[in-house]
């Protein structure tokens, strides 16, 4: 067996964090992308910059800001304490760190897809009696299918590789918050850890490859749905 039980746990945690972060943020990503794509309001670009900020900030900075925010004396500290919730050094913290860092990629991909929807489809639906929400669910959502999938793939992949923000907010606790990148980091700092680091790297490659394959296969089945009319 190439992997130790601890490594298996890291692989499992990575998948768990990436899946949770992707599934939880997807509806919000869709909502924000819809807002950016269709809403007309002053100051929208400022909001867009804010959402995109984690994309350009060093992940460590994002992690540190999250640590300040969720810390005991932070903005959300008293609220968390009231509900007896812990974010720091927990798996939830790892999910939040991944979600925040990957969110701009998700929104960006969905938004590009939505911007490409011909406005006439939406106008046609409206004149045929569909309200805004109805149009959103029956026209915009299906026609953004591929973009949503692309965004989720990006988000999932980004979460698998998340390191900087996670190590600050969730720490590097084997079996609790140690994901693949954190475990590799540990092995790299351990004498004779090369072989173990290498096997985790291979797992990482296999996992990423599987994600890309699955997303391509799904995109093919969606292709029919969002093909542009001639």
């Amino acid at each position: 067996m190439l992997l130790s039980p601890q490594d298996m746990q890291a692989v499992w945690l990575s998948i768990k964090v990436a899946t949770t972060a992707t599934l939880v943020t997807a509806p919000f990503g869709f909502g924000i992308a819809y807002f950016f794509s269709f809403a007309r309001m002053p100051g929208k670009y400022l909001l867009e910059c804010l959402v995109n900020l984690p994309l350009v900030l060093p992940p460590v900075v994002v992690g540190y800001l999250l640590l300040l925010f969720f810390g005991q004396s932070g903005f959300a500290g008293p609220l968390l304490k009231f509900f007896d919730l812990r974010i720091i050094f927990t798996l939830t913290g790892a999910v939040i760190a991944s979600a925040v860092v990957g969110f701009p990629l998700l929104v960006r991909a969905i938004r590009i897809g939505m911007d490409n929807i011909d406005i006439h489809y939406i106008q046609a639906a409206r004149t045929l009696g569909a309200g805004r929400l109805d149009t959103l669910l029956t026209i915009i959502l299906p026609l953004s299918g591929r973009a949503i999938l692309a965004g989720m793939t990006l988000m999932f992949a980004r979460s698998l590789g998340e390191f900087g923000a996670t190590i600050i907010l969730a720490g590097n606790i084997p079996g609790v918050t140690q994901t693949i990148p954190l475990a590799i980091y540990d092995y790299a700092n351990t004498p004779d850890g090369d072989r173990m680091a290498m096997s985790l790297c291979l797992v990482s490659i296999a996992l990423s490859f599987a994600v890309l394959l699955a997303s391509e296969a799904l995109a093919r089945s969606f292709r029919k749905g969002s093909a542009d009319a001639p």
């Binding site: 489809y121 299918g145 029919k224 969002s226 093909a227 542009d228 009319a229």
Partner: peptide
């Protein structure tokens, strides 16, 4: 519409 714009989905 001029170009029909049937819902492709």
């Amino acid at each position: 519409f001029q170009h029909s714009h049937l819902f492709p989905n």
